[in-house]
Amino acid sequence: MATKTENNSASAGKKEQENLSQANLQKQAGNQEQNMKDSSLHKFFVDALKDIYFAEDAILDALGKMESAATTEELKEVFEDHQLQTKKHISRLEKVFKLIDETPEKKECKAIVGIIKEGEDIINSTEAGSMTRDVGLIIAAQKVEHYEIATYGGLVQLAITMNHDKAADLLDRTLEEEEETDLLLTEIAETSINVDAEQED
């Protein structure tokens, strides 16, 4: 009988020790997570996310104007398709914020504001219905793409460094789509629009 009681006590003690160990591990994990959130790198990462979140929203609006201003149906379709993609990019960014336990917020991106302003200047300074306008719109759109490619490329690497693997996957999908759009714009310019623009008076 004494042996059974001793065994029960030993078992209870072992269970209590396991519970304490689990609690300590959870506490350590919580401390590590808090330390990560307080780190300069995390703050920089969140700041960069806010920047591109603002940028994507501004790009969505600009793409509508570029589509209306474009001359060829081919380029209009590219801008229309990329508007749909950009909506997905915004949704993905909101998921990334959620994955790292942050609230989606926008921070004015001066770079994209400037690039979009250049695009508007191109529309105002080129003739409606001309291929030259389409040449200018492609260059303006590629400046946007290159900014996004640089930003998402950096964000993917930061997410990997901080072990935000799911966030890295989402950001990488957007990066790939931005690269594909950039290549498509180059292809359209090289195969038709640049040549046609050269023949204009």
Rank of each mutant, 00 (worst) to 15 (best):
G114M: 01
L185T: 09
A70N: 03
E176F: 00
E190R: 13
L20I: 15
D81S: 09
G153H: 10
L185A: 04
L20N: 12
A111R: 06
K14V: 03
E67F: 10
I59D: 02
C109S: 15
N19A: 11
H42T: 14
F45Q: 12
L93Y: 00
I112C: 02
E102V: 05
R92Q: 06
Q83A: 12
A10Y: 09
S130H: 04
Q199T: 09
Q142K: 09
M36I: 15
L93A: 11
Q199H: 13
Q28D: 13
K95S: 13
D38I: 02
M162Q: 04
E200L: 02
Q85F: 05
E94P: 08
E33N: 14
R173L: 09
V113K: 03
A10V: 08
S11F: 03
Q22R: 15
V96Q: 10
G129V: 08
Y152T: 00
D47L: 00
K88E: 15
A140R: 02
N19M: 13
I112K: 07
T186A: 14
D196A: 14
E56C: 07
E120N: 14
Y152H: 01
E94G: 01
K106P: 02
E33R: 12
N24M: 11
S91Q: 14
I149D: 01
K166R: 10
Y152W: 01
A168M: 08
V156N: 03
N163W: 00
L75W: 01
Q26T: 10
V135A: 09
I112W: 03
K143Q: 13
E148Q: 05
D47M: 06
E198Q: 14
A29E: 11
A62V: 01
D81A: 12
K65R: 14
N194D: 05
